[in-house]
Computed example of a mutant assay.
Amino acid sequence: MYKITAIIPAYNAELFIEAALSSVFEQTYSVDEIIVVNDCSQDDTSKVVNELSSLHENIHVYSLGKNKGVSYARNFGLAKARNNWILFLDADDVLEPNIVEKANAYLENSDDLSKLAMIHTSYKQIDIEGNIFDGIIKGKELKQGEAFGELLVRNQIITPSGLLLNKEFVLKYGNFNEKLSSKNEDWDLWLRLSQFGDIGYIDEPLVRVRRHNSNATRVLNVVVAGSPEQTILDQYNLDVIRAAILCRSYSKVKNILDYVSMLYRFQKWREGVIELEQLVSEDVKEKSSILFLKAVYFLHNEQFEASKSLFEQILKITPQHGASLNNLAVLNAMNSNFLQAKHLLESALDLNPNYMDAIINMRLLHTDGEFRNSYRFTLRELRPVLLSYEG
């Protein structure tokens, strides 16, 4: 059985920290030590943690004199940890009782732990009251050769809570970047480590991630010049990114489509659409994706009629294409076709009840404000299960 250290950074977590810690105490396989880093909380987090630590001798509580942020707190915990395998848990999330047991089994069945950078699991989402949202957020096992490209394309595959990290990789390749926003520092580290090791995956929902107004991962990033996501992407040469994406074991068309998405994120719109012009596919999903990325290009250039035509083409071949339903609704609303916009948004929400862009656009349809200035286009195709956000 492998010795594991659980690290819990906590800031103003009095409402949730007891449930988080209880989920560690109640594991079928016990962790060797628990490190709580209280990041200068202004509520009763310290009181709750200290009361619990008096009952459990393997808890070590460190209170910072100044609020330093979640990256600093995690790095502080890593420096204090006595074990190589680190289980992260945010203070408002909850572990399932067998995650340590499952992680141990994965480690025992691994051929070469020196190549294993981390293990993640699928997870469920809960609201502030602990109610579970529909659907399971799934990840995937990623070998070193494909992991970097896969994480570039989708930066929300792995959540910190429930992740088991090989500390040797952090010591060798660097820890969490404390200069980055708390919504991006984990992705930056996963990208870095994925270039040197494998990412394991347990296909069971072994953690419950809480979505609410104050947690660190609530806001989805919009990539603009100077944004934290752009700062991370700018660390990598575009040729490196292209090679990483195209070497994955998907079809050539899918790889190029994902590369075009990256070009768009780098604001290289013209280069992206040139790549698209050379793509041909008989696969319905790939055909829809080609049309969608062309439509996004026209949206960027404010060629709204051209984009509208393409979204309509997509819905003819893929009627349940959520992002196209939302975007076509916006274009209709901009032309004062509010009834049609409402119908399209209702269809999008029937398919994806947690679809935030569609939820916001539906609210805007019922306000007296200027819709055109506040609408939300969706510039990437939707995941099978969407992240949920409360509030």
Rank of each mutant, 00 (worst) to 15 (best):
M356S: 14
A341L: 10
A244P: 11
I256G: 01
E302I: 00
N332G: 02
L365P: 09
K287W: 00
Q340P: 13
A295V: 01
S251A: 04
A295E: 03
H366N: 15
N335F: 07
V240Y: 06
L276E: 08
E305Q: 11
D258H: 04
E286Y: 02
N255W: 02
A243C: 01
V330S: 01
I314T: 12
D357S: 12
A244Y: 10
A306L: 12
L339Y: 00
N354Y: 13
V240I: 11
A341E: 10
H343Q: 15
D239N: 11
K342I: 00
Y297N: 00
N354M: 08
K294R: 13
L310A: 08
N326Y: 10
A244W: 09
L339W: 00
Y297W: 03
A348V: 08
N326M: 04
F304Y: 12
L276I: 06
E275R: 06
F266D: 03
S249R: 02
Q303M: 07
A306M: 10
R363K: 14
T367L: 07
L349M: 08
A243V: 02
N255P: 00
A323N: 09
R363L: 04
D357P: 14
A358L: 09
N361H: 07
K254M: 08
E302S: 03
N354V: 05
I290R: 08
I314K: 14
S288P: 05
Y355S: 04
L339E: 14
E302A: 02
F311E: 11
N352C: 11
E305P: 00
S281Q: 09
H300V: 01
L328M: 07
N337E: 13
K254N: 09
K268A: 13
H343F: 06
L293A: 01
R242G: 00
D258Q: 13
K342A: 06
N326W: 10
N337C: 08
H300K: 04
E312S: 15
V253C: 06
K268D: 01
E312Y: 11
C247H: 08
Q313G: 05
Q320F: 08
R270D: 15
N332H: 13
N327Q: 07
G272A: 13
L349S: 09
L310W: 13
M356W: 03
L325F: 09
